[in-house]
Design a protein around this nucleic acid. Structure first.
Length: 546
RNA sequence: GGCUGGGUAGCUCAGUGGCAGAGCAAGCGGCUCAUAAUCGCUAGGUCGUUGGUUCAAAUCCAACCCCAGCUACCA
């Protein structure tokens, strides 16, 4: 038998301290497109996204608001889920680091590393802000009064040392270098890979994996003497501390694959095919994470794609600066499909990109309303007008057919290399070719000749419109991972049943459907055309400033 | 500071020795099937600066100016 390929793609989990901005959901949209592409191709696909909920900051913020930490993160998670639903994000699981199976998973990963001799007791030293906790060396400022943390400039920092557990990252330097050498596409794009490789070559230090004192976190499962920190009644000895950051957050990827409860599922889904992460956490995903997995006897993920940030007038979008776009505003203005398309078309997936309402609406109007939406509209209108809506079939000698073959190859290549903006650019060149065909053939002129009794003109007209309708089918279907709802609506207008589910599962193998003329000869009736992407007027394009 | 990448049209970018390019935005024209859509044409650039190599430099070399990324434990 030819086994169905399976594909496991993840995003980074988002810090659940606020409502999500488009700059946060950007990678989720991208991952969703890749997941849908694989589902439609017929790969058995798993798409994991979720939230990171353990941190001193979150517990503190909840306390300030007089809420339980649990209630606080539940609220934030609901905001994420609502925004993702609005963007038609289709995770197979939305994981939370507070999920019980994740807690078991993180603890088991710690036990495995310990059993492998990679976790040892050490001393963590650093600046400590009494109002906040340990601060990284890069995160403190020098003031005339002394060293301070930027969040609490009036509070004197203390130099503290704390007994913590450490992970022996230094033991994996050679293996990491070898892995990078043998798998050049493990970390991409190339310039990020080179940065990571440079970091490895500079020498690796061990990092701490536990914190004492913190209570909002996963209990560290091991006592200093090596015994379990779990008591007879099932509770955990707080003296053991909690698991710190990366042995919590990164572990979500194996939890999402079934670890540790469902070994069969884990064997099926691990290693992940693709982690999509922001450049700020590239090092943890391409260096810490493989070492942690190897320590547990597991394989490294196959690919890590490192994307850039959204910028507003050159500045990184962030919640603290307040210069971010609310995904719900973008969806309200552009629609879910428009928001997805425009975000991934305007922002290169491999580097930072400046975005604005102006660039978004211009792109929406140019690509979606004018180029593709109007192509669909004019094609269907003419077929309705000249042939009563009977869907015409492709012609015998369509020049678009060979152009399509080339387009599809380029589109697929870019999409599968995570060059999402380039993929759309390639596909839209074909949209332009179809629009030019209309001008070249002038169906309205052929229609006049047909009316005058020219049988040749009628044949020609039918073929031209058949080619245009076929072009629309192919474009809509190929673009469906980006614009799933619009693709379905386009199919309805074209008189085709849309065979895929709301998440892209369940239909025929996409690449079979993407052949020119795959449905030639099938009878069908076109519907009344409705603008697929209504054009935006300038006045309506600047909602929610600031 | 060190290492890496970049500075090309109003905007976003492609272009690694041979007549400066694309898309969008702008202007003009054509068409009328269409969402004032579409198609064609035009305009617009001392290719960061200065010097050098070369018959020839956006491209190679040197110096300098500016921007970004990385330079370890943030979620």
């Amino acid at each position: 038998m030819s086994p169905v390929d399976r594909y496991y793609v993840t995003t980074a989990i988002a810090y659940a301290n606020n409502k999500p901005g488009l700059h946060t959901l950007y990678e989720v949209i991208g991952a969703d497109v890749i997941a849908r592409w694989h589902r439609m191709k017929g790969d058995e696909t798993r798409f994991l996204t979720g939230t990171d909920e353990h941190s001193v900051n979150i517990a503190q913020k909840a306390a300030e608001l007089g809420e339980s930490t649990r209630a606080f993160v539940d609220e934030k998670v609901a905001l994420f889920r609502a925004a993702e639903a609005a963007l038609l994000i289709s995770p197979d699981r939305f994981i939370r680091t507070s999920d019980p199976d994740h807690i078991r998973s993180a603890q088991e990963m710690v036990r495995r590393a310990y059993a492998n001799g990679d976790i040892y007791l050490g001393k963590y030293e650093g600046w400590y802000c009494p109002a906040e906790g340990f601060k990284a060396g890069s995160d403190v400022i020098e003031t005339p009064e002394g060293t301070r943390c930027p969040n609490h400039p009036t509070v004197a920092l203390e130099w503290l040392s704390e007994q913590n557990w450490f992970f022996r990252l230094s033991a994996y330097q050679e293996r990491l270098e070898k892995h990078f050498a043998e798998h050049p596409d493990f970390a991409q794009p190339d310039y990020r890979r080179n940065e990571m490789l440079g970091f490895i070559r500079g020498g690796l230090e061990d990092f701490s994996v536990s914190r004492s004192g913190a209570t909002w976190g996963i209990p560290f499962p091991i006592m200093p003497d090596g015994s379990s920190s779990q008591r007879a009644d099932g509770t955990w000895d707080p003296a053991a501390g909690t698991i710190y950051v990366w042995y919590d957050a990164l572990i979500n990827y194996v939890t999402g694959a079934g670890f540790p409860d469902d070994q069969a599922a884990f064997a099926k889904w691990w290693p992940a095919d693709l982690h999509i992460v922001g450049k700020d956490i590239a090092r943890f995903h391409t260096i810490y994470w493989p070492a942690m997995l190897w320590s547990a006897g597991m394989d490294a993920p196959r690919h890590v794609w490192i994307h850039g940030f959204l910028l507003a007038q050159g500045e990184r979008m962030s919640k603290s600066l307040g210069n971010f776009l609310d995904p719900l505003d973008v969806v309200a203005t552009l629609g879910a499909d428009g928001a997805r398309y425009v975000t991934l078309r305007e922002v290169a997936f491999d580097r930072d990109t400046d975005v604005s309402w102006d660039s978004f609406t211009r792109r929406y109007n140019a690509d979606l309303a004018n180029d593709f939406g109007n192509l669909l509209n004019r094609s269907i209108s003419m077929a309705n007008r000249y042939f009563g809506g009977v869907r015409p079939s492709v012609g015998p000698d369509a020049g678009l057919a060979s152009a399509w073959t080339e387009t599809l190859a380029g589109y697929q290549d870019r999409l599968e290399r995570c060059l999402l903006s380039d993929a759309l650019c390639t596909l839209w060149e074909f949209v332009g070719a179809a629009n030019r065909l209309v001008e070249a053939e002038q169906p309205w002129t052929l229609a006049k000749a047909m009316k005058a009794g020219d049988a040749g003109a009628e044949t020609r007209l039918k073929a031209v419109l058949g080619d245009l309708v076929e072009a629309c089918r192919l474009i809509a279907l190929a673009a469906a991972p980006f614009i799933p709802a619009a693709a379905s609506r386009a199919f309805a207008q074209l008189g085709y049943e849309y065979p895929y589910g709301a998440d892209g599962n369940g239909g025929p193998a996409l690449l079979d459907e993407l052949h020119w003329g795959a449905h030639a000869g099938e009878a069908g009736q076109l519907a009344t055309p409705e603008p697929l992407f209504p054009r935006l007027e300038a006045e309506s394009t600047t909602p929610a400033e600031g």
